[in-house]
């Protein structure tokens, strides 16, 4: 039933849990493919560039951040693919989810930055509201 699953991650504990659910559901059917979407907002991008000299360092730094998530998919032997996008996480996830044909969208309930959530509202809430596919929010 779930042939294509989108899971949005940001490297936080919750997103690792979300990835675990994605991997588990995907492992039930060998044909299922998981798209892992990592969205970097402006502040994150800015600090990434400040903290890394050059594009290679930047690439390695982000790869390391996503390593725990990669390990989960390896563990479940599911086929997966990473996509990194830049922008405001909510709208970017929504656009990406609606542009492609996903059967299920999975997202963690809380991101890294509580202050941002207070000011801008919860990303998972927006995603649940505006994505056309079924959405699973992992607490």
């Amino acid at each position: 039933m779930y042939k294509r699953i989108l899971v949005a991650v940001d490297g936080s504990e919750n997103s690792v849990r979300a990835a675990k659910h994605a991997a588990h559901i995907a492992s039930l059917d060998p044909d299922t493919k998981v798209d892992v979407l990592y969205v970097l907002d402006y502040d994150r991008t800015r600090s990434d560039v400040i903290h890394n000299a050059g594009r290679d360092d930047l690439h390695t730094d982000r790869k390391k951040r996503l390593a725990p998530i990669e390990a989960i998919f390896e563990q479940y032997h599911t086929s997966y693919e990473f996509t990194i996008k830049h922008g405001d996480p909510g709208p970017v996830i929504i656009t990406h989810a609606n542009e492609h044909d996903f059967n299920l969208v999975i997202i963690g309930s809380r991101g890294l930055n509580t202050f941002q959530e207070m000011v801008l509202g919860s990303v998972s809430h927006k995603v649940a509201k505006r994505v056309t596919a079924p959405v699973l929010i992992v607490k």
């Binding site: 402006y42 991008t45 990434d48 560039v49 400040i50 594009r55 930047l58 830049h86 922008g87």
Partner: peptide, 12 residues
């Protein structure tokens, strides 16, 4: 040049 690198990354 720092700003340029940030914009490089964001806009790919």
């Amino acid at each position: 040049l720092l700003t340029a690198s940030i914009i490089d990354d964001i806009t790919e």
